[in-house]
Design a protein around this nucleic acid. Structure first.
Length: 804
DNA sequence: AGCACGCCGACT
DNA sequence: GTCGGCGTGCTC
């Protein structure tokens, strides 16, 4: 009996965002399963695209109107997307307004994305001279972007005349790493005989034979070459002579560079104990309960995670732990690996695509029982989840900023429900959304109020910089902070200095006419980068030399303003010439592994001061750091965003926790121009509860989340008028379906009106219940697709992290 | 997305 | 008269 396969094709458009039916060729009947990738013909030409089998069903009653095409080939021997993840991709597509195909691809490692190639070959009828000109001696020509427009024109014409044929190739990007394994193929006596019949000059072969005589087990070719200082040719000779066999074996790329020390579970304090047993009980009873684990820095949250995970493993289940990308330092991974060893797979952006693919395959094959990773690790194909941990659940990096715009925490909760397992959201400063749900008993609140060693919280001093400015010359360092740094230097202790970069950068301005160098593509000032001696745009990457003469008035009084980490570093070396400083920012951590190397150097006491941006606030645990300085606490406060206070409070609380984690007491200085702001005052005492109460009042008054839901809609176009017009139309359309209770903010031009030559307009809808909103937004997306040829782009972000 | 079809301006 | 420019519509 013939079968039909419903296939989601790799054509990310609104119109094709639906399964297409294909006939299953006889050879594949009863072989093909949902979740396998296939190659299918799609469209007018004979173009081939990749697709995912969505459903297999018997050919019930064929619709005479549509003639089905037949599936070309299968790309996988077994499904690469399991039933759970298929369901999840469907849910994701609906909740994030994304295409199903985009969701499927997001869940898989990049190595599994299709690679498309178009090949042309001559027919018999093609004139010999043209054939020679186009193809030379080759039988096929790759048709890609590298061809000249003239050649493309010529090919198109020839194709119309059927003088050439086009072949579409769909292939895997994935590469399975293979390694040659060497094994002796002769007995010792045979090898000894071969050894004695060698010519005297065959030194290399003699060493090889000696080795084979002494070592009878398998060894990898690179290892052997290294050990015996041989080249591969000697081994090939050995193979030809029948001394040994070489066999290519599939191996995993190993992303772990360092070995870890095995650790044992630590003794828990009563609070930790309570938390662990609550989570374990949910795992044991297969309850999809959500826990909000609230614990100040140093209260031992990680140990709670580890023991909850160990319990899941002991039940024959698996554990997934998400951590924010930025804190995915060897410190955290090391602790998990120290406890669970080889069962751990790691997924984060620092891996190469091959390493990522290999870790993913280990999980897929059930060879890893524990997965630690950043945002996208939430899609790890674990099949028997016993517990899911979301560490630092308030972190903004859990939200993906492009399609599908999902929040890893939401996906984690969905998977928890699917697997009937607990989800643990951990934080010292929970997001207001989560804390509010705990208040309503949607989540179970678990508290770790004490630091494990009963250390006192660091002593926090707020430094009023307006006051400082009056007494001293303009500087990034207040007198008290400088004094404290000096003391640490004398005592041989370490300090962390954080520069809050959000909404802040250094730029150049002409002192005579006030001219500020702008990006030609974006409406934003260029940022000064001393290391490359250039001015860069942080939005589009535009780069140009630093001007010495004002381009506007041709004056010579060009001056640097603002504070970049480089400038602070410079001032620091002038003020404290003996201090050894490590600077950590986007510039110094761009190269792979640079982040880890810098932290290791600091951990090894090769520096006194670690100066950095937000990235130093999280997950660091250096016992000799006794001073933390925040140079500019309030740059984020000035931003017109409802989460500005929350972010500031979280950041300050977190960075303060970095001081004095061991036996030595810590001290924190927060420099600010808003010393009385509640976010800063409450961060000083680490009073999360009071902050929560205060902030919730403000959110309630302003009709902000978590009291209201929000959707952000962004429209962009190279022509400002088109973007504005499209937005006006959208607003009109939305107003007809929205209830009077919904609140529309905007439309407003984007915070940076123009980015990369495109103009942005945006709109935020705040609402409580709008039954028609979803369908209206999908309709808007569909309409926008038609205009997308004109360059119009539209993005819909449900539950945006910011309104900017 | 990418391919074909279809309708208008500048060439042999 | 055609060649080829790109605006439109569709893809099982």
């Amino acid at each position: 009996m013939t079968q039909i396969a419903e296939v989601i094709v790799d054509v990310p458009t609104m119109q094709t965002n639906t399964p297409y039916s294909y006939e299953i060729p006889p050879a594949l009947v009863d072989q093909l399963q949902p979740g396998m990738r296939v190659v299918v013909p799609f469209g007018n030409g004979s173009r081939k695209v990749q697709g995912f089998v969505w459903q297999v069903k018997p050919d019930a009653k064929p619709d005479p109107d549509v003639v089905l095409k037949t599936i070309d080939t299968v790309m996988d021997p077994a499904p690469i997307v399991n039933a759970e993840l298929m369901q999840l991709s469907d849910w994701l597509a609906h909740t994030t307004y994304a295409f199903t195909i985009t969701c499927l691809q997001t869940m898989l490692p990049n190595a599994l994305k299709a690679k498309y190639q178009k090949w042309v070959s001559p027919t018999e009828q093609l004139a010999a001279n043209i054939r020679q000109q186009l193809f030379g001696d080759q039988s096929e020509l790759l048709w890609d972007d590298s061809l000249s427009t003239d050649t493309v024109k010529q090919l198109l014409a020839l194709n119309r005349q059927h003088l050439i044929t086009v072949r579409y190739e769909v292939s895997n990007q994935s590469k399975v790493k293979k390694m040659m394994m060497i094994k002796p193929a002769m007995t010792v006596s045979e090898l000894t005989a071969a050894r004695s019949s060698l010519r005297k000059t065959a030194v290399k072969q003699a060493t090889l034979l000696d080795y084979l005589i002494d070592h009878r087990d398998t060894i990898s070719q690179p290892d052997l070459e290294h050990q015996l200082k041989l080249s591969s040719s000697s081994l090939k000779t050995g193979e030809a002579n029948g001394w040994l066999t070489r066999k290519a074996v599939e191996v995993y790329r190993d992303p772990f560079q360092t070995a870890v020390v095995k650790t044992k579970p630590l003794k828990l304090n009563p609070d930790q104990n309570k938390a662990v047993s609550a989570i374990c009980s949910a795992t044991d009873h297969e309850q999809s309960e959500t826990f909000l684990l609230e614990g100040v820095t140093g209260s031992g949250k990680t140990e709670v995670y580890l023991q909850a995970m160990a319990n899941a493993l002991s039940q024959g289940k698996q554990a997934l732990m998400l951590v924010p990308e930025i804190s995915l330092t060897p410190q955290i991974v090391g602790r998990v690996r120290g406890r669970f060893g080889k069962q751990v797979a790691v997924l984060h952006s620092g891996l190469s695509s091959g390493e990522r693919f290999d870790e993913w395959r280990r999980i897929q094959r059930g060879e890893a029982q524990v997965v630690v990773g950043a945002r996208s690790a939430v899609f790890a194909p674990l099949t028997h989840l016993g517990v899911i941990i979301v560490d630092e659940e308030h972190e903004g990096s859990y939200k993906q900023e492009d399609n599908p715009r999902y929040h890893a925490r939401d996906v984690a909760l969905w998977r928890g429900r699917y697997h009937h397992c607990p989800v643990v959201l951990g934080s010292a400063t929970p997001s207001l959304e989560s804390r509010a749900r705990a208040e309503k008993n949607v989540y179970t609140r678990l508290l770790l109020p004490n630091r494990v060693n009963h250390q006192a919280l660091p002593q926090v001093t707020i430094v009023d910089m307006t006051e400082e400015l009056r007494h001293h010359k303009e500087s990034n360092f207040s007198g008290v902070l400088l004094q404290a740094l000096q003391t640490r230097l004398e005592r041989g202790e370490q300090s962390l200095l954080m520069l809050n970069r959000r909404g802040y950068s250094s730029f150049v301005m002409c002192r005579d006419c006030g001219f500020v160098l702008q990006c030609p593509n974006c409406d934003i000032s260029l940022t000064l980068h001393m290391d490359t001696k250039t001015m860069k745009c942080h939005y589009c990457g535009h780069e140009e030399p630093i001007p010495h003469v004002c381009p506007n008035c041709h004056g010579h009084h060009i001056r640097y303003y603002g504070t970049g980490t480089q400038k602070v570093e410079q001032e620091l070396t002038e003020l404290l010439p003996t201090a050894r400083v490590i600077r950590m920012d986007v510039d110094t951590t761009r190269r792979k592994g640079a982040h880890e190397r810098l932290l290791k150097r600091f951990g090894d006491h090769q520096a006194d001061i670690l100066l950095g941006t937000q990235m130093i606030a999280k997950g660091l645990d250096f016992p000799d750091v006794t001073l933390v300085g925040v140079l500019n606490a309030d740059t984020a406060l000035g931003l017109p965003d409802f989460r500005a206070s929350e972010r500031t409070f979280q950041l300050l609380t977190q960075v303060s926790g970095r001081a004095g984690r061991a036996s030595k007491p810590g001290q924190v200085f927060i420099q600010t121009y808003n010393p009385d702001h509640y976010a800063i005052q409450l961060a000083k005492t680490q009073n999360y509860e009071q902050f929560f109460g205060r902030e919730m009042q403000l959110r309630h008054r302003g009709n902000y989340p978590p009291y209201y839901f929000a959707v952000k809609l962004t429209v962009s176009d190279v022509e400002e008028r088109k973007a504005a017009e499209a937005m006006v139309k959208i607003v009109r359309q939305l107003k007809t379906i929205l209830s009077p209770q919904a609140i529309i903010l905007g439309p407003t031009p984007g915070a940076i009106a123009r980015v990369n030559k495109r103009y942005y307009y945006q709109l935020v809808i705040k609402y409580k219940r709008e039954s028609q909103l979803d369908s209206a937004l999908f309709k808007i997306l569909g309409q926008a697709q038609k205009q997308s040829r004109g360059g119009l782009q539209i993005a819909i972000d449900r539950n945006p992290m910011s309104f900017m």
